[in-house]
């Protein structure tokens, strides 16, 4: 059952472009669809200008298919490649500035809680590694310290991709990138560990190689953020353009890193979040 707002007025239904009609008739609103249903429903993202073979674009698509209740989800993005895709998603979404996504989301989440105290309004932060771990790190971490009920997702392509492939804090040590012409001099920031120590109730790192695992992490992050506390999911999204490999190798790159443990997959759940998820997932509604 869809919310009333997702209904067209009959007066103009005949002139609405097909993609909107499809979203109402065959979109994921109120349907409980997940990643497994991709290909048989109208996706929340219509079309985007990201590169062929973009791992980030794939992750965005999978995230959008993983939302427990898209009809009550507002996405807060940040500057970067992902911000070219978010205007095209069929959800209300905010792009404010570079790095301030968790601060904006803190204000938004609290405002929505004030206006709709009896409803779950999921505020989902989706931003790149530069936005999350570099320029916005203080705001990301402080939203965790304050216990803001936000799900924060990092699309980690290990570089500033939108600006042309510069080193970021999440780039691997030794990696040669713009602004690191002799190779990066320090280690990849251990943000999952930092998240765990900063008060996140649920932390996971995943890749799009295993879409169901990604879906599970995103869903858990959103659900735990509703009741327990802040959550963090880090998704490795290889960038063929800036790391100069062939677009069809994106998933192979991710798989290789999973295998050789240079991008270890992890999940951390506090006992409180565990109990909350057990109660939810025991019901079989999600996963």
């Amino acid at each position: 059952m869809s919310k009333p707002m997702l209904k067209m007025t009959t007066a103009f239904a005949d002139v609405m472009p097909a993609e909107y009609v499809e979203l109402v008739q065959n979109g994921p609103f109120g349907k409980g669809y997940g990643v497994a249903d991709l290909g048989s429903f109208k996706e929340l993202i219509e079309e985007h200008p990201l590169c062929a073979g973009c791992g980030l674009a794939l992750a965005v698509r999978l995230i959008m298919a993983s939302l427990p209740t898209p009809e009550d989800t507002v996405v807060v993005g940040s500057t970067g490649c992902s911000s070219l895709a978010f205007p095209q998603i069929a959800l209300q979404n905010i792009h404010s500035l570079f790095g301030n996504q968790n601060a904006v989301a803190s204000g938004l989440k609290r405002a929505l809680k004030l206006r709709f105290p009896d409803k779950h309004k999921d505020v989902l932060v989706v931003a790149g590694d530069g936005a999350t771990a570099d320029i916005g790190l203080d705001m990301v971490m402080h939203s965790w310290f304050r216990g803001e009920k936000l799900a924060t997702i990092m699309l980690d392509n290990e570089a500033y991709a939108n600006t042309g492939g510069q080193e970021s804090g999440m780039s691997p040590e030794g990696c040669v990138l713009n602004m690191a012409p002799t190779g990066k001099k320090f280690k990849k920031i251990a943000l999952p560990e930092i998240a765990r120590e900063s008060g996140c109730a649920y932390v996971a790192s995943v890749t799009p190689v295993q879409p169901r695992k990604l879906e599970k992490a995103v869903r858990r992050a959103i659900l735990v953020a509703r009741e327990v506390g802040p959550t963090y999911v880090q998704i490795f999204v290889p960038c063929p353009t800036n790391f100069k490999f062939k677009p069809q190798e994106t998933l192979a790159k991710a798989k290789q890193k999973e295998k050789d443990q240079t991008y270890p997959l992890r999940e951390f759940i506090t006992p409180e979040a565990q109990a909350y998820l057990a109660a939810l997932e025991g019901g079989g509604k999600h996963d």
Binding site: V76, I94, S96, L97, N100, A103, V104, A105, S106, G107, L108, K109, R110, A111, L112, K113, L114, R115, D138, M139, H142, R146
Partner: peptide, 24 residues
Amino acid sequence: KDYYRGENEFAVMSAVAGAAMGGV
């Protein structure tokens, strides 16, 4: 109804922007 101390002025101005976009 709600009040908190933010982490710096840029974050505060961002947070009030988020809240205003949320309709309060």
